[in-house]
Amino acid sequence: MYRKSKKGIHAVTGTVKNILDKNVSIREVVFIALVFLCLAPAVSPPVALLLGVVTAQVVGHPYIHLNHRASQFLLQLSVVGLGFGMHVNNALNAGKEGMLLTTGSIAGTLILGVVLYRILKIEKKTAFLISVGTAICGGSAIAAIAPVVQAGEKQMSVALGVVFILNSLALFLFPSIGHFFGLSQNDFGLWSAVAVHDTSSVVGVAAKYGMEALEVATTVKLARALWIVPVALMSSVMFRTGGGKVKIPYFIGLFVLAMLLNSYVPFIRNISPYILDISKSGLTLTLFLIGCGLTGKTVGQVGGRLFLMGCLLWIVISVFALWAVLSKNT
């Protein structure tokens, strides 16, 4: 018994020594310091994204192999936490208001994507993934549809690269455009949910504009993500693949559960503001990690015609959604 205990102590001691003896690089120190900086209230989501991009280009990401999984998990956790700041009735009203615009914009974007693919004469599967990412919910839609159309890793990476670059631009451009046109909180939330690709960027953009915009944008965007299912079925027919495994974002259900708890459980409403603050910090950190993933390799693999297609799709859907939002108020 004594020998076993002694062996256990030596094993623990050896593990601790290995950890302490490991050389920590300057790159790791800088990265960890920036992670803590992004948790500070003074750092906004767009600033965090910019810090991430600069880190990727200047310092380099010391844990790049873990970045995608970490950012995805943190994003999903943060979105669920945002549900604790929303009420079911407000969410239903926002969902109803955005339903027609969502349906029209998704159909229009996919049709325009086919037209541009033929005009620009670019690779079919990559073009389709860019169209789906623009139409529905960015990287999540691309990841879900890629196995259905049997897209390769390079095709998926290029599509994600296009969407990511445009997402980054949206974080800086959209709030200024919203203020220029005098959009209300509700209108901006609706517009950003339709026109910005990824859920993370939608939430980041809307959070900068205001709490009501955040509530509307998050609800409409997550409802929009459910379109992955019918689009996946359509994709399997178009590409004659016989279907494939579709990955539906499970955190949407948890987000709805969080809203229900916040709406109908008094005890939860007392702690909801704290959960909401933590979730906002988590989102800011998520955008920093996403920025860290924008390496020179990611940018370099995006071809000119594919990027042009992504830009045209994004501009058209953004202008159409803005016109629809402004028109309903006249």
Rank of each mutant, 00 (worst) to 15 (best):
V203E: 00
T109M: 08
V132Y: 09
L129N: 04
M156E: 10
S157V: 01
E212T: 15
A151L: 01
K221I: 13
A144V: 03
G113M: 13
A146F: 12
S201L: 04
M211C: 08
A144S: 15
V203H: 01
G204I: 06
A135P: 02
E123D: 14
S192F: 05
V194C: 12
L173D: 00
A107P: 04
E212L: 15
A143Q: 05
V148D: 00
A127M: 07
I142P: 06
I119V: 15
L112S: 09
E123M: 03
I111M: 14
L110P: 08
S105R: 09
A141W: 05
G108E: 02
A193H: 01
F172R: 04
I119T: 06
K121G: 06
N167A: 12
I142H: 00
S200G: 05
K124W: 06
F128E: 00
I111Y: 11
S131L: 10
Q185K: 07
L214W: 09
V196T: 01
A195Q: 00
D187G: 14
G152H: 08
V114H: 09
L116M: 05
N167V: 10
I177R: 02
V158G: 05
A135I: 11
G138C: 10
V115C: 12
G210V: 08
Y209A: 06
R118D: 02
M99N: 06
L160T: 07
L171R: 02
A144P: 11
V149M: 15
S184D: 03
T103P: 04
V149T: 03
G161E: 06
L110V: 13
T218R: 05
D187Y: 04
S176W: 14
Q150N: 14
I119N: 05
V202M: 04
I177E: 06
T199N: 00
T218G: 02
E212S: 15
G133P: 12
T134C: 14
A195S: 15
G161S: 14
E153N: 14
I122Y: 04
C137D: 02
A170G: 11
K208L: 14
E153W: 09
V149L: 15
V220C: 07
G204E: 05
A143T: 04
D187R: 02
A107Q: 03
D198W: 09
N186G: 10
G138S: 10
F172H: 09
K125P: 06
E212G: 11
E123L: 12
A217Y: 06
A195E: 03
Y209T: 01
V203Y: 04
K124G: 00
F174L: 13
L214H: 05
K208P: 03
V216M: 08
L100A: 13
V149D: 01
M99I: 12
A170T: 12
I165W: 03
F180I: 06
S168D: 10
Q155K: 10
A217H: 03
T199E: 00
N167M: 08
I122W: 07
L171T: 01
V148C: 08
M211K: 13
F188L: 15
M211L: 14
G210Q: 09
K121Y: 10
V149W: 05
S200P: 11
M156F: 09
